[in-house]
Amino acid sequence: MKSILVAAAVALVVSILFTPYLIRIFSKQGFGQEIREEVQKSHSAKRGTPTMGGMAILVAMWAGYLVTHLTVSDGLPSVTALLVLGLTTVLGVVGFLDDFIKIRKRRNLGLNKTAKLVGQLLASVIFAILALQFADRNGITPASEHLSFIRDITVVSFGTVGFIVFAYIAISGWSNAVNFTDGMDGLAGGTAAMVLASYVLISFWQFRYSCGLEQNIGPACYQVRDPLDVAVVAASAMAACVGFLWWNAAPAKIFMGDTGSLAIGGLLAGLSMTTRTELLMIVVGGLFVVEALSVVLQIVVFRTSRRRLFRMAPFHHHFELAGWAETTVIIRFWILAAISCLFGIGLFYADWLSLAGGNGL
């Protein structure tokens, strides 16, 4: 528990103190956000607000994790944690390039679809291949070839190639989902903090009842590798998002940009695979899922009927164009995100209770 608290405290302090430094630097360099033409009327005042603030989240996340291992954590950084951190960082670099091109070319479109696809593909393939290696003394690898809900669904096995394909779909899907949600001040950052807080609880609970501990036997224990270190990563990222939110909340002084949204999406995908909760993440991160689905549905309906299902997609802009104040949309969406997180945690705990029953765990 001490390592989780230290990681969160360090990441929070670094994020709060480093973000205003980025604001000053980016403002001097003219690294301002371009605004979509469709929302310029209501968001025109935001043009020129510094972007690429996701750098603060990444730096704070790494700082929280590394300081923890240098001070209170026993042993070296785990393979599982480094894989998740590496995936997050690589996607953050892809997002940074996307943001930088937008800034230099003064447009709302950065990397072309092919370049972004290649970046996500390389990150996903490398992560998936390595995550199936490095078995511990109990034979548990960082990720599993089986699809998982709260635990592995053993009857659904992808195989190595299938898992690589699945990892790409999950990583690109979550990256884009967070990216779609990042359209209002603090919406994506606040939601991400709640989802990551949920995974601090989930990972720590898995650590307490890991099958790798001798006292834990029976069907209720968790077949996961390095759950405590994964909890440290989640805590660092959660606190980094909270610290960034201090400056990103309405009216935002800085935006996370694709640097932050793609990185956070990759982090969520990595956490879901290393904790064997890929389908549960859909529940916990329900708001991100709804935002992504709103974009898909808008495209499908428009292409088939030439009519718009929503006033504008992603979904949060629909309510803004309906007359809701931006802060009203943000707070109500945060409430929905919190409900999704609580429901997901409830499902996780209910599964443990049903299996722990009379096993004394």
Score class of each variant (00 low, 15 high):
Leu267Glu: 00
Ala263Ile: 06
Arg276Gln: 07
Val296Glu: 00
Glu291Leu: 02
Asp258Cys: 04
Thr304His: 14
Ile264Leu: 15
Cys221Gln: 07
Arg306His: 15
Pro227Ile: 11
Leu293Val: 15
Ile254His: 13
Ser305Gln: 14
Ala220Leu: 04
Leu297Lys: 00
Thr304Cys: 02
Leu280Phe: 09
Arg276Gly: 04
Val242Glu: 03
Pro251Asp: 05
Leu280Pro: 06
Gln223Met: 09
Ile282Cys: 12
Ala231Met: 02
Ile282Asn: 00
Arg276Asp: 05
Pro227Gln: 11
Thr274Asn: 09
Ala240Gln: 05
Pro251His: 06
Ala240Tyr: 08
Thr277Ala: 04
Arg306Asn: 15
Leu228Phe: 02
Arg276His: 14
Ala237Cys: 13
Val290Gln: 13
Val284Asn: 01
Val232Ser: 10
Leu262Tyr: 11
Ala249Arg: 15
Phe244Cys: 05
Trp247Met: 11
Leu279Thr: 07
Val224Lys: 11
Ala249His: 07
Trp247Tyr: 14
Ala239Leu: 11
Met273Gln: 04
Val283Gln: 06
Glu278Met: 12
Ala292Trp: 03
Val230Trp: 01
Ala250Pro: 08
Leu228Lys: 13
Val301Asn: 09
Glu291Asn: 08
Ile299Asn: 08
Ala220Tyr: 13
Gln223Gly: 00
Thr275Leu: 15
Leu293His: 02
Ile254Glu: 03
Met281Gln: 07
Met281Phe: 11
Ala252Tyr: 09
Phe255Ile: 03
Leu228Pro: 00
Gly243Phe: 12
Ile264Asp: 08
Ala269Gln: 03
Leu279Ile: 14
Ala269Asp: 07
Phe255Trp: 13
Val283Arg: 02
Met281Ser: 08
Leu262Gln: 05
Val242His: 04
Pro227Gly: 10
Val296Ile: 15
Leu245Trp: 10
Val283Cys: 07
Leu293Pro: 06
Val289Thr: 12
Gly260Ile: 01
Leu297Pro: 01
Leu267Gly: 04
Leu245Tyr: 12
Thr259Arg: 00
Ser261Gly: 12
Asn248Leu: 05
Glu291Ser: 01
Val224Gln: 08
Arg225Val: 08
Asp258Gln: 03
Met281Cys: 04
Val289Met: 14
Lys253Gly: 11
Thr275Ile: 01
Leu268His: 00
Gly265Thr: 01
Ile299Leu: 14
Leu228Tyr: 06
Ala237Phe: 13
Arg225Thr: 10
Leu280Arg: 11
Trp246Arg: 09
Phe244His: 09
Ile264Asn: 06
Gln298Ser: 12
Val296Gly: 03
Ser261Leu: 04
Arg303Phe: 05
Ala292Glu: 01
Val296Ser: 03
Leu271His: 05
Ile254Asn: 09
Thr259Lys: 01
Asp258Met: 05
Thr277Asp: 00
Ser305Arg: 15
Ala269Phe: 02
Ala231Ser: 14
Ala235Cys: 11
Ser236Cys: 10
Ala249Met: 13
Ile254Val: 14
Val283Tyr: 09
Val301Ser: 13
Ser305Val: 13
Ser236Phe: 12
Val300Trp: 13
Ser305Met: 10
Leu267His: 01
Met256Ile: 08
Val284Ala: 03
Thr274Phe: 08
Thr259Trp: 02
Pro227Trp: 06
Met273Arg: 05
Met238Asp: 04
Thr275Asp: 00
Val296Asn: 00
Leu267Trp: 10
Val295Ala: 14
Ala234Asn: 10
Ala292Asp: 00
Cys241Trp: 02
Gly286Met: 11
Cys241Arg: 02
Asp226Arg: 04
Arg303Gly: 15
Ile299Met: 15
Glu291Phe: 07
Ala250Gln: 13
Leu297His: 00
Ala234Tyr: 10
Arg303Gln: 15
